[in-house]
Simulated scan of single mutants.
Amino acid sequence: MQKIAICVSGGGTNLQAIIDAVANGTIRDTKIELVVSNKKEAYALERAAKAGIETACICPKDYADRETFGKEMVRIFDEHEIDLIVLAGYLVIIPEILVQHYRNKIINIHPSLIPAHCGMGYYGLKVHESVLATGNKVTGATVHFVDEVADHGPILLQKAVKVCEGDTPETLQRRVMEEAEWHILPEAIDLIGQKKVTIVNGIAHIAD
């Protein structure tokens, strides 16, 4: 049984997609062991509580430095024997100590087709504002493994989404979530749980 922890900062729509996918069997042999947020007011924590999932709030500002914050994250994930950490709308740069301790065991969902519209400063609506400002006709979402660089690391899954005439950042954000994010993030978790993913020379490979 794969035990996962999900890190969130906001409303938790991707968290809900994962909860639903575990419940309906789309994600197999997996238990959501813990949901962690950096914000006490995050609605995602309410979603987790309603589903009977243990929650924790670990705010970087409560710690002397990033290393101490990272050590606390490592401690709680180790304590729960987590196999995979899922960043689902988590607006915190992961401390290096956590990346190193859980190398190739942390994945992130980003609302663009990496390497476009990603990196420091590209989060939330800012991503979709950038897509519209550059006149892209296609955008999408990416699931990738996390390394020490923001929105970097081996790409696991991507799904394209059409940009429509008259789109606003809000309408585009919603379409990317509905057509891409809520599908490929559960799929990625299932693939990893079924041991179908290997990383060779920085490239993620999926077995048939």
Rank of each mutant, 00 (worst) to 15 (best):
M1L: 12
Q2K: 14
K3E: 08
I6W: 02
I6S: 02
V8A: 02
G12D: 00
N14F: 02
L15V: 03
L15K: 09
A17V: 03
I18W: 00
D20Y: 00
A21P: 06
V22F: 13
V22E: 09
T26M: 07
I27P: 04
I27Q: 00
R28N: 13
D29E: 14
D29A: 12
I32G: 01
E33C: 01
V35C: 05
V36A: 01
N38D: 13
E46L: 10
A49G: 10
K50F: 03
K50A: 11
G52S: 02
G52L: 07
T55A: 00
T55K: 05
A56V: 06
A56R: 15
I58F: 06
P60A: 09
K61Q: 12
K61D: 07
K61S: 09
A64K: 15
E72M: 12
R75D: 10
R75P: 00
I76F: 05
F77D: 00
F77Q: 08
E81V: 02
E81A: 13
D83R: 01
I85M: 12
V86K: 05
V86F: 05
G89H: 05
Y90M: 02
Y90Q: 05
L91M: 15
V92M: 03
I94G: 03
P95I: 08
Q100E: 15
R103M: 11
R103Q: 14
N104A: 13
I106V: 12
I107R: 12
S112W: 08
P115I: 14
H117D: 06
G119M: 06
G119P: 10
G119Y: 08
Y122N: 08
Y122V: 08
G124V: 00
L125W: 01
L125D: 03
V127Y: 10
H128M: 04
V131G: 10
T134Y: 09
T134K: 08
G135S: 08
K137Q: 13
V143C: 03
V143A: 07
F145I: 07
E148P: 01
A150V: 15
H152F: 12
H152I: 07
G153V: 05
L156C: 07
L157D: 05
L157K: 11
K159D: 09
K159L: 15
A160D: 01
V163R: 02
C164F: 06
E165S: 13
D167G: 13
D167Q: 06
D167R: 08
T168G: 10
T168V: 05
P169K: 00
E170N: 00
E170D: 03
R175V: 06
V176F: 04
E178S: 07
E179F: 07
E179L: 10
H183F: 13
I184Q: 04
E187S: 14
E187W: 07
L191I: 09
I192F: 10
Q194H: 11
K195S: 14
K196V: 11
N201R: 14
N201L: 11
N201K: 15
I203G: 05
I203R: 15
I203W: 10
A204P: 05
H205L: 13
H205M: 13
A207R: 14
